[in-house]
């Protein structure tokens, strides 16, 4: 706990944002998110949407892996389930986007529960491998099922709101940002209640969780369901963003990307999912810039981009695991504590 704060009521003590300063920051953040599309160029709006989609998915994985302690490498494939669900609904049924996103979430949650069943028996590395197997099964289905359009995949129309087609990033921004904000807020709320506490209890010591009356299988599956729901909605937004869904859209490397995001950001903290996904989405862009500057000297630098990217990702994961296992969120907390009492105490 930070010092220098004093709470008068239990409600105030349990609040998500407990000081006036935090509310001011939150308002500033909201205001800048609203203003952003009016001042930023198309490239940055495009990036903002991508960041938001990744934040939504990483937050979901954080619920499962960071908070419940169940390592999953299936997040990308689960996003695929959501993306295909949306694509099929858009092309064949034509229901409105918010229904499609909810159905995508629900469908993916159901799939997640099925693939979460091994988690009762296996943990850690073995569970990770079980989720890889799940990804492979899903990819096989994506590539061979008529409904999902085989290897060519599906193309779909844009989302539309009151007859306006959300076909450009600066329009879709108004869908993606609020949905992601709601999802992050929901996750933050979860960990103020018995449901979130039960997840953490299972992560930290599942034997004593059982003695407290927490049923392991049911709670683990609930975590899988919720995490997959997040993946499904994120995948649905991804589908609206790119409007072409193919079996190659959600490779295993993307699952590693999300795992890396929560490791770098901070496992088991809401802020960690946000910071990690943002950071990891922007790193390749920074690399692109750097490689661009290098082209005059190294002519084929661009062809090196993909391997460099992989190496940098790997180095970041290892670096954070060794030097800052609590991730960016912890670094941020340290900065905050520093400035909280600054300049009176440093």
């Amino acid at each position: 706990m930070r010092i220098g704060t004093f709470k008068l009521s239990y409600a105030a003590d349990e609040a998500l944002f407990d000081t006036r300063v935090q509310w001011v920051w939150l308002a500033l953040l909201a205001a800048s998110l609203v203003l952003f599309p009016f001042v930023a160029g198309p490239y940055w709006i495009y990036m903002a949407c991508l960041v938001a989609i990744n934040v939504a998915s990483a937050t979901g994985l954080n619920i499962l892996t960071g908070y419940t302690g169940l390592v999953s490498l299936g997040q990308a494939a689960f996003m695929g389930v959501g993306a295909y669900t949306v694509a099929v609904l858009e092309t064949r049924v034509g229901t409105p986007f918010f229904i499609n996103l909810l159905v995508a979430g629900g469908m993916t949650a159901a799939v997640g529960v099925v693939f979460g069943i091994p988690s009762l028996r296996v943990k850690g590395l073995y569970l990770a491998i079980a989720t890889i197997a799940a990804s492979m099964i899903l990819h096989f289905l994506f590539a061979h099922w008529d409904l999902t359009g085989g290897t060519r995949g599906l193309s779909m129309p844009p989302a539309s709101l009151f007859g306006i087609a959300l076909d450009q990033p600066h329009k879709l921004y108004w869908l993606v940002i609020p949905v992601t904000a709601l999802m992050v807020l929901g996750a933050a709320n979860l960990f103020r209640t018995r449901v979130g506490r039960a997840f953490i209890a299972i992560r930290d010591r599942d034997i004593s969780a059982e003695v407290l009356g927490i049923p392991l299988l049911q709670t683990k599956l609930m975590s899988f369901a919720l995490s997959s729901f997040y993946a499904g909605v994120a995948g649905g937004m991804w589908a609206y963003f790119f409007r072409v869904v193919t079996p190659e859209s959600f490779p295993l490397i993307n699952s590693i990307f999300y795992l890396a995001a929560i490791i770098v950001g901070g496992m088991g903290t809401i802020l960690g999912g946000i910071l990690g996904a943002t950071f990891m989405t922007l790193v390749p862009e920074v690399l692109k810039l750097v490689v661009g500057w290098l082209t005059p000297w190294i002519p084929d630098a661009l062809s090196l981009l993909a391997p460099i990217r992989t190496i940098v990702f790997g180095a970041l994961i290892v670096g954070f695991l060794i030097f800052e296992p609590q991730g960016l969120a912890e670094i941020w907390q340290r900065i905050r504590r520093f400035f909280h009492l600054w300049p009176f105490k440093t």
Partner: peptide, 14 residues
């Protein structure tokens, strides 16, 4: 835990 009734939907919206 066992005596509380909050379900996942209540929890998300608090």
């Amino acid at each position: 835990h066992a005596h509380l009734k909050t379900n996942i939907f209540d929890a998300l919206f608090y």
